[in-house]
Computed example of a mutant assay.
Amino acid sequence: MASDGSRSVVLVALAANFGIALAKFAAAAWTRSSAMLSEAIHSLVDTSNQALLLYGLNRARLPADARHPFGYSREIYFWSFVVAILLFSMGAGVSIYEGIEKLRDPHPVTDLWINYIVLSIALLLEGYSAYKAMTQFETSRGRRSWLTALRASKDAALFTVLLEDVAAVTGLLIALVAMIFLQVFGWTQADAIASLLIGLLLASVAAFMSIEIKSLLVGEAASPKVLAGIEAILGQKIGPSGPLLAINELRTMHLGPQDILVAASVDAIDGLPAEKVEALTSELESAIKAKFPDVRRLFIETQSIAGHRAASAGETAPEAQASEAQTSESR
C-alpha cells in the first residue's frame, strides 16, 4: 500500500501540471513556438500520468480476494510502468518529431514575452511540485546518494513524480534558454533544437523509469536492513537453549511499496511437540511484524537441514532419507 505522503505528492503534481499545460498550449498556439508546444505536450502527458498514478494508488489499496489472494499492491507498479511508456512514446516521441519538423520547415516565433511569462509561472509551479517530491523522498533517502536511493526505492509513485518534476524543471530551463538565444542572438534554430533536447531528456528519464519499475514488477527483495533484521529475530532462537537449530532459507519480495512477503524455512530441534512449534511460529511472526510493519504476509515452515537441501536440489525428503540410510549401512 502506498503511503499518504506519496498520494499528496501526486495530487500536488497533478494540479500543477494541469494548469501549466493549459497555459503552455495557449502560448504555443499564439507564438508558434515548437519548444513551447513540446513543453505543453510534456505537461499534458505529466497530467495524465499523475491521474494514472492516482488510479493505481487507489487500486493498490483494495483488499485481497479469492482471485488475488495477495492483494492488489502491485497495481501501482503496473500503472507506473504505463506512465513510463507514455512519457517515452507521447512526451519524448512528439517532442523529437516536432523538433525535426521545425528544422525541416522553420517558421518564426512571435510575441516571445508570452513565452517568458508562461515559462516563469511554470517554473514556479513545477519547482514547488518538485520541492514537495524531494522533501518526501528525503525522508527515506538517508545517507545514500540520490541515484542509489532512487534505484533502491520501492515507492514507484513517489520516484515517478520526482523524476517527472525534475525533467519538467530541466525542460523549462532548456526552453527558456532557447527563447533567450532566439531573441538575443537571432538563432532561429534554437527553438527546434530545444524541442529535440527536451525529447531526448524525456526519453532518458522514461528509459530509467522503465528499467527500475520492470525490476519491481518482476519482484525485488526487501532491503538489506529488513533482511538483516528478520535474520536477527530468527537467530535469537538459535543456540544451545533455543528451539531452532538453523535458518535454512529466507526469501522476501515487495508486493508493493509497503507490502512485503516473507517466506522462511527453519530447522527446529528434534522432538519438539507440535503445539510448541505452533507457538514458536506465532511468536516469531508477531516479533517480525512488530518490528517491520511493512511485512504483511509471513510464512514460516519448519524443515530439517537435510530435508531442505533435498527439496532445493529437486529431490523428495523420503528419497534423501533413503540415500542417507544406504550410506550408513555401507559404512
Rank of each mutant, 00 (worst) to 15 (best):
G99C: 08
W79S: 06
S80Q: 04
Y116H: 05
V118D: 01
E75H: 12
F78R: 13
R74F: 05
R74Y: 02
S129Y: 05
Y72L: 13
A15W: 00
V118K: 03
L112K: 01
A23H: 05
V118Q: 01
S3P: 00
N58P: 00
I41L: 03
F70N: 09
Y116F: 12
L124C: 11
L123P: 01
L52V: 06
G127K: 08
A92P: 11
V45C: 10
S73R: 04
E75R: 13
F81E: 02
E101K: 15
G99I: 05
E101N: 14
R104F: 04
A130F: 10
M90Y: 02
F70M: 14
Q50R: 10
I114Y: 04
L52W: 08
A84M: 01
S8Q: 11
W30K: 12
A16G: 00
L119F: 06
L54R: 08
Y131S: 08
K132G: 01
Y72C: 12
R104L: 13
F78S: 12
D105N: 09
H107K: 15
S38C: 12
Y77P: 06
R67I: 14
I117F: 06
E126S: 12
V109M: 08
R59V: 15
A29L: 15
A51L: 14
I100P: 04
N58F: 10
A51I: 09
P108T: 11
E126I: 02
S38N: 02
V45K: 01
E98L: 07
Y131P: 04
A27I: 09
R61A: 15
L44D: 02
Y77E: 02
L37Y: 03
A84H: 00
R67M: 14
G5C: 03
I20K: 03
V12M: 06
V45I: 10
R32D: 01
N49K: 13
A21G: 10
L57R: 07
V83L: 08
L112C: 05
W79K: 06
V118Y: 02
L125W: 00
D4A: 10
R61Y: 09
A29V: 14
R7Y: 03
L57W: 02
L57P: 03
V118N: 02
H68M: 14
A64E: 04
A15N: 00
F78A: 13
E98S: 07
A66W: 05
A51C: 11
A35K: 07
H42R: 02
A92T: 13
V83G: 05
K132W: 05
R59E: 15
T47M: 15
S80K: 00
S34T: 14
F81L: 11
Y97Q: 10
A60I: 11
S3I: 01
Y116D: 04
F70A: 10
L54K: 09
S34D: 13
A40S: 06
G71L: 06
I20V: 14
S33N: 08
V9S: 04
E98G: 00
K102E: 11
I96L: 14
T110V: 15
E75Y: 11
V109N: 03
Y77C: 07
L119N: 02
L11P: 02
A66R: 09
S6H: 06
